[in-house]
C-alpha cells in the first residue's frame, strides 16, 4: 500500500514537471542571439533581487556578489526588493540605471546593443502574485523564445507569449544598467539626463563631463540635454562654453526660464554685465509667480544689476 502510494506520488510529480518542460524547444547557446558573457549568480530563497542586480552590474564590470548587495535592496518584511531600490543600488555603484520604454521592441533593441535587460515578472498562478526579478540575455526570433538568467537557472528558456504575460503584470517594467558614458541604445535625451543627474554624486568630475559630452553629441537639440551641458560647463569654470549651450537651448525654446537665468549668470562670469542684466530681466519677465525658480531669478537680477552699476564691461561673448 505504502509502496503504491509512493509510486503514484512520484508519477504525479513527474507528470507535473513534464507538463512544464515538454513544449519548450531546445535552444543551443548561441553567441549571435544570446549575451553569453553575462555572469550568473544563482539566487537563494527570496533573494532574486540581489542576484539579478549582481548579474547586470557584473556585466558592466562591477565585481559584487548578491550577498554584498542584499543589505542595500532586500526588505525582510516584504520578502523581496522594490524596483526603485534596485535602480538606486545600481547608481550607488557608479552606474547609470535607465528604465526602458514599456514595450518588447525596446527590450529587443537593448539586447541587440549588448545590454542585458533587468525585468520584473509575475510568476504566480491562480490569482496569487509572485513578483520576480530576472535578467533577459537573449531572444531567438525563429523559435520565439527568450533566454533569461533567472532564479537558480543559468539559462531559463521561456516562450515569448509566456514571458509577455508574466511581464505585463508589472506594466512591462524593464531597466538596463550601463556605464555613465554609454547611453542605452533606446534612451532619449531627457530621460538620459534624469538618470545621469541621479547618479552624478557617485561619479568623478571627469566621468560626469564625459557623459554630458556624449549626451550633447547624440541629442544636440534636446532642451534638457542643452541645459545640463551648460550647467556642467558652468560648474567646470567654462562660462564661454556654457553660454554656447544656453544660447542653443534658447534658440529652440525662447521661454526657458532656467536657461535664460543661467545664461545671465554665465555672461556675468564672462565679464558681460550689461548683456547679463538684459537676460536676467527677460528671465524675470518669463518666470511665473510662485515658481520655485523665482528666487534664483531674483538673485540673478540683483547680481547683474550690482555688476552693471560698477560698469566695467570687458566682454567677448556679446
Amino acid at each position: 500500500m505504502a509502496g503504491a502510494r509512493a509510486i503514484s506520488w512520484t508519477l504525479a510529480a513527474a507528470m507535473a514537471l513534464g507538463a512544464c518542460t515538454t513544449r519548450l524547444p531546445r535552444v543551443p547557446e548561441d553567441p549571435r542571439r544570446e549575451l553569453t558573457g553575462v555572469p550568473f549568480f544563482p539566487q537563494t530563497i527570496h533573494q532574486c533581487g540581489p542576484a539579478a542586480l549582481a548579474t547586470v552590474l557584473g556585466t558592466t564590470g562591477v565585481d559584487v556578489t548578491p550577498a554584498q548587495l542584499a543589505p542595500g535592496v532586500y526588505i525582510p518584511g516584504r520578502r523581496g526588493s522594490l524596483q526603485v531600490e534596485m535602480l538606486a543600488a545600481a547608481r550607488s555603484h557608479g552606474r547609470l540605471a535607465y528604465v526602458l520604454a514599456p514595450d518588447f521592441g525596446a527590450l529587443r533593441a537593448e539586447l541587440a546593443a549588448g545590454n542585458p535587460v533587468l525585468v520584473l515578472q509575475d510568476l504566480g498562478a491562480l490569482g496569487i502574485r509572485r513578483w520576480h526579478f530576472a535578467v533577459v540575455i537573449g531572444f531567438d526570433p525563429d523559435r520565439e523564445v527568450l533566454v533569461l538568467r533567472s532564479g537558480t537557472e543559468r539559462r531559463r528558456i521561456e516562450t515569448r507569449n509566456r514571458f509577455l504575460r508574466s511581464w505585463q503584470a508589472g506594466q512591462n517594467w524593464a531597466a538596463v544598467i550601463t556605464l555613465p558614458g554609454q547611453p542605452p541604445a533606446t534612451a532619449n535625451g531627457s530621460d538620459f539626463i534624469r538618470a545621469l543627474t541621479a547618479t552624478e554624486r557617485y561619479l568623478s568630475p571627469q566621468q560626469v563631463a564625459a557623459a554630458h559630452a556624449k549626451a550633447l553629441a547624440r541629442w544636440p537639440e534636446d532642451p534638457l540635454v542643452l541645459l545640463a551641458s551648460g550647467n556642467q560647463a558652468y560648474a567646470a569654470g567654462l562660462p564661454d562654453q556654457a553660454i554656447t549651450a544656453y544660447r542653443s537651448l534658447l534658440a529652440i525654446d525662447p521661454g526657458h526660464v532656467a536657461g535664460r537665468n543661467n545664461l545671465a549668470n554665465a555672461l556675468l562670469d564672462a565679464g558681460c554685465a550689461p548683456a547679463a542684466m538684459a537676460e536676467a530681466e527677460r528671465a524675470l519677465a518669463l518666470v511665473e509667480t510662485g515658481s520655485p525658480l523665482a528666487a534664483a531669478v531674483n538673485d540673478t537680477l540683483a547680481r547683474t544689476r550690482a555688476a552693471a552699476a560698477v560698469g566695467s564691461s570687458v566682454c567677448g561673448a556679446e
Partner: peptide, 17 residues
C-alpha cells in the same frame, strides 16, 4: 511589487498540481 519569490512559485505550482 517586491520581486523575490521566483523559487517558491515553481514549488507552489507543483504542490497544487
Amino acid at each position: 511589487p517586491a520581486g523575490g519569490d521566483g523559487l517558491l512559485a515553481v514549488i507552489g505550482i507543483v504542490f497544487i498540481v
